[in-house]
């Protein structure tokens, strides 16, 4: 009986934190009670949520990907340039943006998987290279797009639907496929995984390419929402992505984590941003409170895990 209670907290503790936040906000803020606001939160987290899912895969292998924010900008300027030149050809714009982002992911993967460069270092370098690339490519100027079809991707329920589809697909990939198992095993103990016949380097390479691709999708959604591809956008986005993954129970040493956990993590961050705005907390204070809540959530999670040992 007691054991099952502990187990419950270990598994769902972080979800309780999210529910508690909702209950408090529902009580104190009338605006929070509206459907409109709920849709707002979801739309706001969709871009960061996609990045957080990308980050979860990478962290799960024991690595980290600091390029995701820069790739949001890369996707925006590549897609933007093509769509500005030829508004009818938005599909080509999206395709080109995703390919370039996947190539950046492949670059990260090459250094991490085949040259054994630590992921932090490889992607830190990748971060500034990708950011620089976005500026050089756009000459520092934003592309303002006029394609109605393209901008529909960022409006209404579309970003939410895109995010949810990615969520479901990635959850299935990680929890039900052989490849998902290989990711867990590689992150948990890459030597044991290799000795079990898993081609660890290939697994790593695929994960980094996938992270690049997902970052590209996030970048496209953001560009569509703002009708522009800007080289400066996405700076610091990796922090929310890392925070969401970690709040959601992903272990920084690899091998542990789930996609639904990360969903809860990004919803906690989204709710926090939204709730603090509704409560008129100054944006300076918001940053401090956010940091404290991240620490609190993770400490809660760690202590509930210790209890179950």
């Amino acid at each position: 009986m007691k054991q099952s209670k502990v187990e419950f907290f270990r598994k769902y503790g972080i979800l309780l934190v999210l529910v508690a936040m909702w209950v408090i906000l529902l009580c104190v803020s009338p605006t929070f009670r509206t459907v409109n606001n709920a849709v707002n939160i979801l739309r706001q987290v969709s871009v960061n949520g996609i990045l957080a899912i990308a980050m979860t895969f990478v962290i799960m292998t024991g690595g980290i990907d600091l390029t995701v924010g820069s790739l949001v900008a890369v996707a925006g300027v590549i897609g933007g340039s093509i769509i500005v030149a030829n508004p009818g050809n938005w599909i080509l714009g999206i395709a080109a943006a995703l390919i370039v982002c996947a190539l950046f992911g492949a670059m990260n993967g090459f250094f991490v998987a085949f040259l054994d460069v630590p992921a932090f270092v490889a992607t830190l370098a990748g971060q500034t290279i990708a950011r620089g690339f976005a500026y050089v490519y756009s000459d520092g100027k934003p592309y303002t797009m006029a394609s109605k079809t393209f901008s529909a991707i960022g409006k209404g329920m579309t970003p939410i639907i895109i995010f949810l589809i990615i969520f479901v697909l990635c959850h299935i990939l990680l929890s039900m496929t052989k490849f998902g198992r290989y990711i867990y095993a590689t992150g948990g103990n890459s030597k044991a995984a290799a000795a079990s016949g898993i081609r660890v380097r290939q697994v790593l390479m695929k994960v980094y390419v996938m992270a690049g691709l997902l970052s590209g999708i996030a970048g496209i959604v953001l560009a569509a929402r703002t009708n522009s591809g800007q080289p400066a956008v996405g700076t610091g986005f990796e922090t929310d992505a890392i925070a969401a993954a970690v709040i959601g129970g992903t272990s920084m040493t690899g091998g542990i984590g789930t996609i639904p956990g990360t969903l809860v993590g990004i919803l906690i961050i989204g709710t926090l941003n939204n709730g603090l705005n509704l409560l008129n907390v100054s944006s300076y204070w918001q940053q401090i409170i956010k940091g404290i809540i991240i620490l609190g959530a993770v400490c809660f999670d760690i202590s509930s895990k210790k209890l179950s040992k």
């Binding site: 198992r181 867990y184 095993a185 948990g188 103990n189 030597k191 000795a195 091998g255």
Partner: peptide, 15 residues
């Protein structure tokens, strides 16, 4: 080389 210690018995055996 033998086990992924933080994963389950099941996952280790089927790996």
């Amino acid at each position: 080389y033998g086990l992924v210690l933080n994963r389950s018995i099941k996952e280790n055996i089927s790996l």
